[in-house]
């Protein structure tokens, strides 16, 4: 029995439009994800203050995100400053202006490298564990248990992490900046023999308040993005496609770290073009 003509045209049409359907599906999912993340962030921020902040939880998270990161932040700050000192020296000495090394090192660290490298390092150290911890709590139904006991999981789990990130990122960035400038001093002045007075005087003369505040604005924005993305990925582990249970947690952690790093660098470009 021949097919009715109407169904055949319908099949052909849907076959013809299937690429468009795929694009539409992906777009809708992306937009829904973005909207979910935005609402999640807003709710988390709201829950920091309403009801009153739970300071013990925040202190605990500051300890985990901030105190335990000091060593690694200081270490990479030192080496970043030292390599900038070396590279800057070999570039500047060609123009006979190695006196500008201090300005070059301080400006690139304060404006750019400090906020970005700090954010990426904390993503690797604390962001991944945020996603994994919340993910495991989700798949072992601890978050549902909290809801059952009438404890708001957003306030209990997400808000302290957001608040602690907003506190820790700028402070760690400041530590990174200062240690980085000292690193530049080590390689530039101690190893390569630039006058330390000229080095620090140049820094003093070139760095302006706008550079410093620009760096801090960046680090606050990165704090919000990283904490929100990492908590979101962990919190909604169960809603992911393509993985259940342990696999889901591993996927959530991976995408939290990758997404955070990409978003940090993209946001860095956007912020720099606004701040300049």
């Amino acid at each position: 029995m021949p097919r009715p003509k109407a169904t055949m045209t319908q099949t052909a049409l849907s076959l013809l439009l299937s690429p468009a359907t795929a694009v539409g599906r992906v777009t809708l999912r992306f937009v829904a994800e973005l909207g979910g993340l935005f609402l999640f962030t807003l709710q988390g921020l709201w829950r920091i203050f309403v009801p009153a902040p739970s300071w013990p939880k925040i202190v605990q998270q500051v300890y985990f995100i901030g105190v335990k990161s000091i060593f690694v932040i200081a270490l990479i700050g030192l080496f970043t400053g030292m390599v900038l000192g070396l590279q800057g020296y070999y570039t500047l000495v060609k123009f006979g202006s190695e006196g500008l090394l201090g300005a070059a090192v301080a400006l690139s660290i304060i404006r750019e490298l400090g906020p970005v490298l700090t954010a990426i390092m904390i993503t690797g150290r604390a962001g991944s564990s945020m996603a994994a911890e919340l993910g495991i709590m989700r798949i072992s139904e601890q978050i549902d248990a909290l809801s059952t006991m009438d404890i708001n999981p957003m306030r209990f789990l997400v808000a302290p992490r957001l608040a602690a990130s907003l506190i820790c990122f700028p402070l760690l960035t400041a530590i990174f900046d200062v240690v980085g400038i000292l690193g530049g001093y080590l390689s530039g002045c101690v190893l390569l023999g630039i006058n330390p007075g000229v080095y620090f005087d140049r820094i003093d003369a070139t760095v302006e308040l706008a550079d410093v505040t620009g760096g801090f604005i960046k680090s606050v924005v990165f704090a919000l993005l990283v904490a929100a993305i990492c908590c979101y990925e962990g919190y909604f582990t169960h809603a992911r496609q393509g993985g259940f249970g342990a696999k889901g947690v591993s996927l959530a952690t991976t995408s939290a770290v990758v997404l955070s790093c990409v978003v940090i660098l993209v946001a860095d470009y956007v912020l720099t073009s606004f701040l300049l």
Binding site: V62, Y63, G66, V67, I70, I110, I167, P170, L171, L172, A174, I175, D177, V178, L209, V212, T213, F216
Partner: peptide
């Protein structure tokens, strides 16, 4: 940690 961070912020600003 917070005091050390604030010290660095103060130095920078």
């Amino acid at each position: 940690f917070v005091l050390a961070g604030l010290l660095c912020v103060a130095y920078l600003t």
